[in-house]
Structures are given as C-alpha cells and as structure tokens.
Nucleic acid binder design. Sequence first.
DNA 1: TTGAAAGCGATACCAC
DNA 2: GTGGTATCGCTTTCAA
Lengths: 346, 346
Amino acid sequence: MAATLADVAKLAGVDLSTASRVLAGSEQVRVRPETRDRIHVAAKDLGYRPNRVAQALRTSKSSTLGLALPQVDNPVFTDMISGVETAARSRGYSILITRIGGASAGEALLQMAEANRVDGVLVISFDSDRVLESALGGLKIPVVMINRRAVKGAGYVVHDSRGAAYKATRYLIEAGHRRIIHLAGRLDGYNGSERHAGYVAAHQDAGIELDPSLVLEVGYDAERAAQVLADYLKSVAPSQMPTAIFSATLVTAAGAIRTLHGLGFDLPRDFSVIGLNDGLLATLLFPQLTTVALQSVEMGRRAAEMIIDQINDDLAPAHVTLSPGDVVVRQSVAPPRDREIVLQSG
Amino acid sequence: MAATLADVAKLAGVDLSTASRVLAGSEQVRVRPETRDRIHVAAKDLGYRPNRVAQALRTSKSSTLGLALPQVDNPVFTDMISGVETAARSRGYSILITRIGGASAGEALLQMAEANRVDGVLVISFDSDRVLESALGGLKIPVVMINRRAVKGAGYVVHDSRGAAYKATRYLIEAGHRRIIHLAGRLDGYNGSERHAGYVAAHQDAGIELDPSLVLEVGYDAERAAQVLADYLKSVAPSQMPTAIFSATLVTAAGAIRTLHGLGFDLPRDFSVIGLNDGLLATLLFPQLTTVALQSVEMGRRAAEMIIDQINDDLAPAHVTLSPGDVVVRQSVAPPRDREIVLQSG
DNA sequence: TTGAAAGCGATACCAC
DNA sequence: GTGGTATCGCTTTCAA
C-alpha cells in the first residue's frame, strides 16, 4: 500500500541503493544534483515514508526510548514525562511507555529492552526498588534513572534533595517554628534520606534540638500520609504539639493539609505546611501551598538527552544533580500561633 | 548477541522454520512431542526472545498501539492512560505515546501510523479539533477516540455526559439551589454541549427558569476557569448572586474553589460546588469535592480492547457510551445560605 | 556517481 | 512432521 523505497527508486529511474543514500543520508553524500532531485521528487510524489520497522531491523536502532514508571497519576511524574517527551521528540525519538508495578517490573523491562524495541531505557521511580535493580542490571542497552541514584554504571538525574529540604525547613524556622514535623518518604532511599538530612541540617545550623519523634516515614502516597499524620496528631500531648510540617513531596503535603482540615485546624494560623515540588496542585490546595520548586520537567529533558547521547555518540553515562529553585511563597506558612514558645527557643 | 531463532534451531537440531512454528504457533501445530521439547529447552537455555522488530517487519503487525493525547498532566487523562495500559498489556500490546499539541498533531500522528510502527491509534482529547480530524482521516489503520465522538468511521468510547451533568445539576437543585453557574467546557464539542444539555434538562424538569448568563464557557483549564469565574463574580449584582456552581470537569471545579476562597467566600456555606469526574484531587480540595463519578479508567480499557479487536479480528468499530456513576457526596455542597430565596422559588 | 547483492530475524508457503 | 526458501523494507559494502 504505502510506497516503499523500491517504488521511489523505480519512479526516479535509479537503483534502490541510490535512493536510500539520497533519502537517508545527509547532504554530504556525493550524488549528481539532478539525480538527487529526481529522487526527492519521486519520494514526494509517492508520499514516501521510510518504514521505521525495516530500518530498525537493519540497523538495530529503533529511535525509540523506553520509559518505565510505577504510575502515571502523580503530578511530579507527569512533569518528568513531559520533559522526556519534549526532548525525545526534538531529537527524533519516540517513547514506548510501560508501567513497572512491583513484581512484574522485570519482565516488562525485558520485554521492551531485549526484543530490540528500544535503544535505551529511562526509569522514573521514587526510591530504591530491589526488583528493578536486578532487572536493570542485566540489560545490554543504556539505562538512565530519573529521580534516583543509579544502579552500577547507569546514568542518573536527581534533585539536590538535601539542599531543597534544607531551604524548606529553614524557611519554616525563619518563620519562627521550632517543632516541625517531617513527613518523610522512604528513609532508605536517596530522596528520602537526603531530604531528611536537609531537614536535620537546617535544625542543626539554627541550633535547634531535634526530636526524632517528629519524623514520620509516610512514603509517597497522599492517603498514607494523611492517615499517619492523623494518627500522630491524635496521640501527641498538647504541650508537645508541633506548629509546622515539612512534607517531602507535593502529594503528601496535600494529604497532610486534608488531615489538618479534618481535625479542625485553622490553616495557616494553627499549622504551617511547606512542601517540595511546585505545580498546579499546589495552587489548588487551601491554603495555597508554599513550596520549594524543583526542576522536574528539566529533569526529564536532561535524562532523555543524556541517554540519546549515550546511544548515538557513545558517551559515558553521566550523573546530574539539579539544584532546587526558590521558595514559592503562597499562603500555607505563617508564624507559629504561640509566640511565647517561639521566644523561648529563639 | 542475543540469541536468534537460528541459534535455537541449531541447538535443537531442527530447521529454523520448525523452531518458528513451535515457538510462535499455538499448541495446535502438529509436531512430534520430543521435537517440541528439544526446541523449548533450547530456547530456554539460550534465553531466546523473539526479535519483535523482525516479527513486525515480516507480519506487518507491531503489537503496538499509538496513544496520542494533548497533555499528560490532567488527572482525568491519567486515569484513561492507566486503563489503556492495563488492557493493552494484558493482551500483549505495547504503547507508543505521543503528545499532539495543536499544529504538530498531524505530523506526529503520521510519524507513528504511516511508518508501520503501530497497529492502531487511540486518541484522547477534550473536544473537537479540526487539525486532528483531518490527520486522522487519512490513516489506514484503526482509530479509536477516547472521550469524544469520532471522525467518520472511527470507533469511540465516551461518557454519557448529558446524564452525568443532569445528575450533578439535579443534586444541587435538590439541595435547594436555584441560581446555579455552569462552568462549561467547549460548547461546540461533544462533552461540552452534552453537559450543558444535562444542566439545562435538570432545570427544565425542575421547572426552574434558565438564566443564560449563568453559563460560563471556560474550557478545560483550571487557570482559565478560575479567572473567568472571578471576573464574573466581581461583576454580578448582589441580588443576582448565584449560590452554587456545576463545573463540567474536575480541574475546573478545583480552579473555581480556589477563586471562591480568594474572594472570601466561606465554603460550602456561601457557595456550593459540584464537579464531574472523581479522583484523588477531589479529596485534596477544601472542602472536599462532591462529584459525579465517571468511569475514566474503564474508558481507557474499553477503547484499548475495542481497537485490538479491530486489529486482530477485524471487528467493526464500535461506539460505546459509559454511564455515569453515583454522586460521591463529600463536603462541597450545602443548602443555599439564603433560605428565603429558596422558599420563594421552590 | 551509481548499481548489485548480502543480510537484519522472523514468518509462511510449498515440497518431501 | 519437518525442511527449504522467498520475502518483509531497508542499509551498507563492494564493484564497476
């Protein structure tokens, strides 16, 4: 049905191989100008489009990137996906997407990677994941991790999570808060542990003693964060009641705000909340969320470019750390209500 | 590097064609059991995986679906994507994703479809889109539209938008509201016009006179909805102040709530809001949003299955309308504040 | 500067 | 039941 290279060659009165050179090759190939023209005209007339499948078979290059991620309904992930999509397309690559849920992660990856369908694999995930690690270890094509440190040899792009967390925490401290809950991700992963470290460092630099019981490991899920926070607040003694929350992610901050409303707190008068990562969601919360912006779209872009460089130019895998943006000031942070406590500690 | 069919055949001591039959074919192919075993063992030993690219070239079937959509950061779209992914995977299909932004929509689609890369194209979009229509018209592979009516001949899966809108509007009316704003999508598209029709029908059935100035066409974007609503509320005469909003989508409802907070309204006491489509976001808003649930994940599933049926079994394109779910009652709807008005009209 | 021909890795038709 | 072989559409080396 569709015109093939042979059709073009025939119409142009040249050999198939000549047509291939002209159409695929750069402007550099030495061909008589009139021949070149005839071929281009023929191609245009027939509406010729190279069969990418045949090209891929012949060259072992599919110009396709695999994108593996655990879920597509997290606003931070969608930012990264946008970045990947943009960069990939501008360099002529397509994206084959696959969800890597728990146990089936390995098989899904192998399906993509071992069957010559993709030239490289980008992996977005929260923190560590053993299943994934072993599956990735066996691949013979480039792998770049997005938002987490890499398994041996793979490239990665991460946020300066510690720096971002430091900024966020310090912002609360400067607003006068002294008892600050940290809704942490997974403390055994890169982001979770680094963000916790930033939270700790900000306290230390301010000379504030840390209360380990203020760190709640809630993962990366709004529901779970909401639940764990609710349990904590119901159990804490009134005299020990914190005045602020630093949430490691956007969705857990959203979950926290929901819980605070549910318990009758008036925000931000009774409780201040700051999150990490900016986005539309932050403006839809009430009060609108003050956050430290992170370069999530850029993260996707950089990862895609890195892997394409590895594929095409055989560059070594790189390790990029993106610096945090500024604090985006909205309405979720206010000075603590009880001024006396503030003055005592400060 | 990777084992090919030829390797397997050699190891098993059979011809390549025999190995192909056994490995690819069903259990039905007539082969001596011991031969079959030898081949399977050899394949396992070598870690053989069929080269999907070669298969695609030979059979003109890539077992890949194209998924084209305007944006990936809308929670409703991500639900649909999830459904598509699940159904596709369970039937052995992969997903090539591409963003169709405005003018480049056509070329992106052709890239995917005309180069034999995908066996069919699923298109998610809000409402009509001329660029898209013409591009789709020329494709020689099946097309299924998700969330909107189809161009000629293509299948589609849509919500019963009118029924859903009717439910939502009636819920507000039953709560006592008489002046209800409708934040509409695009009134020239399927969803926009049908939802508007449901809003109108609910009023008529309740014997309430319609005020056309209450219909605000805001599209599908939170920012725009927030802005248009703000402009409207600032301009409306106090005596004409509506008491409730029926928003055609989840994100525009979220934008509306933000605006209402910004103008100092106390929700839901001063203003009730109901949306269409349920999801995590609805629970993160304050007050938590009352909505009519729509089957968005199911929509993706059905569309994927439909197109796979078209591809494999040559079934005719179907047209599916998904019925709305129930009203998910949360906290964003209350009786109107001014009882006198209610009693006058009711 | 252009043509001929060998594959890439699989499928499927046709013999035996 | 099993083997031989043409073929999918393209790239690329080697000759001419």
